[in-house]
Design a protein around this nucleic acid. Structure first.
Length: 232
DNA sequence: GCGACAG
DNA sequence: ATCTTGTCGC
């Protein structure tokens, strides 16, 4: 059975000015002074990702819950929604967050950490997707991105676990983290209720074999499969 | 002013 | 994100 795309929430921003105002309002509710879960602690780590069909204006979100110790999949969920905003760098969250919230609602397990595909604090106004999702759910969140966006960094050391600051001018907004020897780093930033050390440590724990965390890989794979089903 | 820019 | 074949390598 294929789900019909759910409609947008009433009052959802439609202009860049409105979306920016929402960010500025929600940003005051981000919690940055909690250490967050200890890396390796027994918890459920949830990866979220989305896939788009711009033709049909459809977005499919996937959430995959992993045992934070064994990295085994304990639950999967998908949700189908409407693309909620045009793609504007810095406003990515508005495109997908309603559907991401829906997919998290479908999980029966309680996430101890949510790993987002994108940024948190590393954002032009310090309120990326991971920050936004964290504030709206109250859950600890981190962002792990594949690209440095507009930020700068020097290459981290060659060993797995080596890091270097991700900089916006002189300000450290996240870290480039080498998750595999000799492989391009990922870009980690804090979302909500997790500090940068723990965010990096969890990113490393969740990436035992590949460049990207297993949470991200599992969610990416699932949302692509779900989008293909939705299209057929 | 223009372009570049997470996904 | 997405458009897209084969190919080199473990």
């Amino acid at each position: 059975m294929i789900d019909a795309p759910r409609p947008l929430p009433p009052g959802w921003p439609t202009t860049e000015a409105e979306a920016t105002a929402v960010q500025d309002e929600l940003r005051g509710r981000v919690i940055l002074d909690e250490p967050g879960p200890q890396p390796g602690a027994p918890l459920i780590a949830v990866g979220v990702d989305v896939a788009y069909d711009d033709e049909r204006d459809v977005v499919v979100a996937a959430a995959v819950a992993l045992d934070g110790t064994t990295l085994e999949v304990v639950e999967e969920a998908t949700a189908v929604g409407r693309v909620a905003f045009p793609y504007v760098p810095g406003l990515l969250a508005f495109r997908e967050i309603p559907t991401v919230l829906a997919v998290l609602d479908r999980l029966t397990v309680t996430p101890g950490l949510v790993v987002c595909d994108g940024y948190g604090l590393a954002h032009p106004r310090r309120f990326g997707l991971a920050s936004h999702l964290g504030v709206l759910t109250g859950l600890p969140t981190i962002g792990v991105a594949k690209n440095p966006f507009t930020f700068t960094y020097d290459a981290p050391g060659p060993a797995r676990g080596d890091t270097s600051p991700l900089l916006d001018g002189a300000e450290e907004v996240g870290r480039a983290l080498r998750t595999q020897k000799g492989v391009k780093p990922v870009f980690v930033s804090v979302g909500h209720r997790v500090n940068l050390d723990h965010a990096c440590a969890w990113s490393l724990v969740l990436s035992p074999r590949y460049r990207l965390p297993e949470t991200t890989r599992a969610a990416d794979s699932l949302c692509r499969r779900a989008l293909a089903e939705q299209a057929s």
